[in-house]
Design a binder for these strands. Structure first.
Length: 334
RNA sequence: GGACGGGUGGCCGAGCGGUUAAUGGCAACAGACUGUAAAUCUGUCGCUCCUUGCGAGCUACGGAGGUUCGAAUCCUCCCCCGUCCA
C-alpha cells in the first residue's frame, strides 16, 4: 500500500482517527441496493451511489434505480444529479462522492457506498492522478485526424508517450485519445503524471464487500430482469426522455437496454432481437464487472445475492464487527 | 413414388479439389482498464504431447466406398432433414 500526500480533499492528518465507511460493490443484479438499504437502516447510514448511469435523471427503469417509495426514508446521494446530455466523468464522481462522504460523516452517520462501476470506485478510493480534464474541442480535432487516417492517433501517441502507447491497444480509441489529450494539455506524459501520485481517499477506513453469487443464477436473474424491463415500461421511458427533447445520441442512451430499446423504437430491431441483445450485453457487462473487482485490493467476497436473508445477516454481522473495531482503533494508540 | 435444396467443430453459418484444424458470428473461458467506463479494447477456444514453436502427432466437415499425388469440396450407394410435384 502506497500513500500519497497529494490529497487535498479529505482530512489529511495521518494520525487523525479514520472514519468508517462501508462499500457494497458487485456486478449488476447481485442485490446491492437491497443490501445497502439493510446496512444503512441497521447502522444509521446514508447511501452513496457508485453507478455511472444512476446519476442521470429520467433513466430509471433501465438502470434499475430504486424507486423513492422503496428507499425506506434513507437518504440516497448521487442519484439523479445530472441531465442526460451533461458529461459526467469519473473525476466528477470522485469529487462529489467525497463531498457526500464528508457530509454524511459530519452528520454522524455511516456512509454506505453502493454500486457496480469499478472505475468510479477506484477513482473515489485510490484516486485519479493530477491531470487535465477532458477537452471536447481538442478531442474533436483529434478524431477528425483519426478519420482522415486510421491509426494515426495511436502512432502519434507512440511518439508523444511511448509507455502509454505500449499499454493501450491501437484499436482502443477512447483510451488513445485520453492519453494524447493529457500529453498535449499537460505537456507531460500520462505515465509520468500517474507515477507522480493519485489523490487517494484519506481519512476513512473502509469495509469493502463484493457480492459474488454464482454465475448461472446471476445470469438467469439478469435475463429475467431485462425481460421485465421491456415489459414494464422501458420503451415508454425512452419515448418520454426523447419527448423531453434529449437526443438519442446522448451518452446514457448508449448503454445496454437503452440502446436496444432505441433501436426497437426506430424499427431497426424486432422486439425479440432487442431483448436478446440487451440480455446478452447485460451478461457480458456483469462478467466484465467481476473481472474488475477480482483485481480490486483488500476486498471481502460475499458468495451470494445481497437480497438473500442469510447473506444479509452475514453482512450485518460483519459490518457490526467492523464498526466496533473501527471505533476501538484510535484508542489503541494511547 | 418423383424433382430439387440441404446435412460443417457446443450452436448459427461460410468454404465448394491443395497454402483449411477449416472465414465470420454466438456461446464459453481468461484478461486490460491512469476523468464520458452499462463505454472501449485484447487473448484463448478439436484432442494429446513437448524442447511453448508461425512445433509434433492424432481425430475431424451425416455414413460407407471410390476417383486423385491430394477431398469438407468430385463420383457412387445408403441414412436423415426441408420445400415442391404425385
Amino acid at each position: 500500500m502506497t500513500t500519497h500526500s497529494l490529497d487535498r480533499l479529505g482530512p489529511a492528518l495521518p494520525d487523525a482517527p479514520e472514519l468508517p465507511l462501508v462499500a457494497i460493490l458487485g456486478a449488476t443484479g447481485t442485490g446491492k441496493s437491497t443490501l445497502a438499504l439493510e446496512v444503512a437502516q441497521a447502522f444509521h447510514g446514508e447511501i452513496v451511489n457508485c453507478d455511472s448511469l444512476q446519476v442521470y435523471r429520467h433513466f430509471d427503469i433501465g438502470t434499475a434505480k430504486l424507486p423513492m417509495a422503496e428507499r425506506r426514508g434513507i437518504p440516497h446521494h448521487l442519484i439523479d444529479i445530472v441531465d442526460p446530455h451533461e458529461t459526467f466523468t469519473a473525476g466528477d464522481f470522485a469529487g462529489r462522492a467525497r463531498r457526500a462522504l464528508a457530509d454524511i460523516a459530519a452528520r454522524g452517520r455511516l456512509p454506505v457506498i453502493c454500486g457496480g462501476t469499478g472505475f468510479y470506485w477506484r477513482a473515489l478510493d485510490a484516486g485519479l492522478f493530477e491531470g487535465p480534464t477532458r477537452d471536447d474541442a481538442l478531442r474533436a480535432r483529434l478524431s477528425a485526424r483519426e478519420q482522415r487516417r486510421a491509426g494515426s492517433l495511436h502512432r502519434l501517441l507512440r511518439r508523444f508517450d511511448a509507455a502509454a502507447a505500449a499499454r493501450i491497444h491501437a484499436h482502443d480509441m477512447p483510451k488513445t485519445v485520453r492519453a494524447l489529450e493529457v500529453r498535449l494539455l499537460a505537456r507531460r506524459p500520462m505515465t509520468e503524471l500517474f507515477r507522480a501520485g493519485r489523490r487517494a481517499l484519506r481519512g476513512y477506513r473502509a469495509l469493502k464487500l463484493v457480492l459474488s453469487p454464482e454465475r448461472a443464477p446471476l445470469y438467469a436473474r439478469l435475463d429475467k430482469r431485462c425481460e421485465s424491463m421491456f415489459e414494464c415500461g422501458l420503451l415508454e421511458e425512452v419515448q418520454r426522455i426523447l419527448n423531453l427533447g434529449f437526443s438519442p445520441s446522448v451518452k446514457p442512451f448508449q448503454s445496454h437496454g437503452y440502446k436496444q430499446a432505441l433501436q426497437l423504437l426506430r424499427g431497426e430491431l424486432t422486439r425479440e432481437q432487442a431483448l436478446e441483445l440487451a440480455q446478452r450485453n447485460t451478461r457480458r457487462y456483469a462478467k466484465r464487472q467481476m473481472t474488475w473487482f477480482r483485481r480490486e485490493p483488500e476486498i471481502e467476497w460475499i458468495a451470494g445475492f445481497g437480497d438473500d436473508r442469510v447473506i444479509a445477516r452475514q453482512v450485518l454481522e460483519r459490518t457490526a464487527a467492523f464498526l466496533t473495531l473501527a471505533n476501538q482503533k484510535p484508542s489503541e494508540h494511547f
